[in-house]
Simulated assay, not measured.
Amino acid sequence: GVNQKGLDTVVAMGASVTVSSGLSLVSRITDDKRPIVATIGDSTFFHMGLLGLVNAVYNKHPLVLAVLDNSITAMTGGQANPAVGTKLRKGDEGRVVDIEQACRGCGVSHVVTLNAYDVAAGKAAVKEAWEYAKEHEEPAVIIFRYPCMLLRHEQAKIRVMVDQEKCVGCKFCINFFNCPGLVFNDAANKAVIDDRFCVSCGVCRSVCPHGAIVEASGEGR
């Protein structure tokens, strides 16, 4: 969200829910009825987010919480978390704590889980949750779920390429999507895929406003 200029506030690990609650109180004072949108990772949700969510439900704070569930604790080295079930010690298995059930157990009525890479569905889900929070003046939760592409087990791969004829050199993919697998060829004034960093997730196909990023066929990139 930072690279896409979609975040107004960046706070400490786990503080997004409680900060959003505080901002919602300010909104009431200023008579601004727009719900606050917050993001939090799956591991941090269990680390600090649950208590903030209970507080938001109890006090009826109109906010939308987007839980980014990538099945890993990426920021501290790739450890497991309660949503995964596996433990740090090899061979140990814990009990999976389902994020959606946890949210409903906290009293959240509007909880939606979807594929994090389905951009169109994600946009619709955010709009729906935002309208719900505004109308009912209470929290709504969206769980964007897809395993990290860097996890050890094999993920589905979608090799992509930039269609050089369709690319107009607008740099939208570079400046707003900001994936390290996309670079700009200044000489050709075109975007290209950098195979050293592309993990073949395929999300960038939904980003280009000109439809220039497409699934690769054969050896072309």
Rank of each mutant, 00 (worst) to 15 (best):
G1H: 08
Q4H: 09
Q4W: 08
G6I: 09
G6Y: 07
D8A: 05
S24H: 03
D31Y: 11
D32G: 01
D32T: 01
P35I: 08
P35V: 05
I36F: 00
A38D: 05
A38S: 15
T44A: 12
L50R: 00
L51A: 14
L51T: 15
G52V: 11
L53E: 04
L53S: 01
V54R: 06
V54A: 09
N59C: 07
H61N: 13
A66S: 11
V67G: 01
S71R: 14
T73Q: 02
A74Q: 12
M75N: 05
T76Y: 02
G77V: 07
Q79A: 06
A80Q: 12
A83K: 00
V84S: 07
K90Y: 15
G91W: 14
E93P: 00
E93L: 15
G94D: 07
G94W: 09
V96S: 01
I99N: 00
I99E: 01
E100H: 03
Q101M: 11
C103L: 06
R104M: 06
G105T: 00
G105C: 06
G107Q: 06
G107T: 06
V112Q: 07
A120I: 08
A120Q: 13
A121P: 01
A124E: 15
V126D: 12
V126F: 14
E131T: 00
Y132M: 11
K134M: 14
E138C: 12
I143Q: 02
I143A: 03
F144N: 00
F144L: 12
R145D: 07
Y146A: 10
R152V: 08
E154M: 05
Q155K: 09
K157W: 03
R159L: 08
M161F: 03
K166Q: 12
C167L: 10
C167E: 09
C170A: 05
K171W: 02
F172G: 00
C173W: 10
N178G: 11
N178V: 07
C179T: 03
C179P: 08
L182E: 10
V183F: 06
A188N: 04
K190Y: 08
A191Y: 09
A191R: 09
I193Y: 05
D195S: 10
V199W: 08
G202S: 05
G202N: 04
S206Y: 01
P209N: 01
P209T: 03
G211P: 05
A216T: 01
S217W: 05
S217Q: 15
G220H: 13
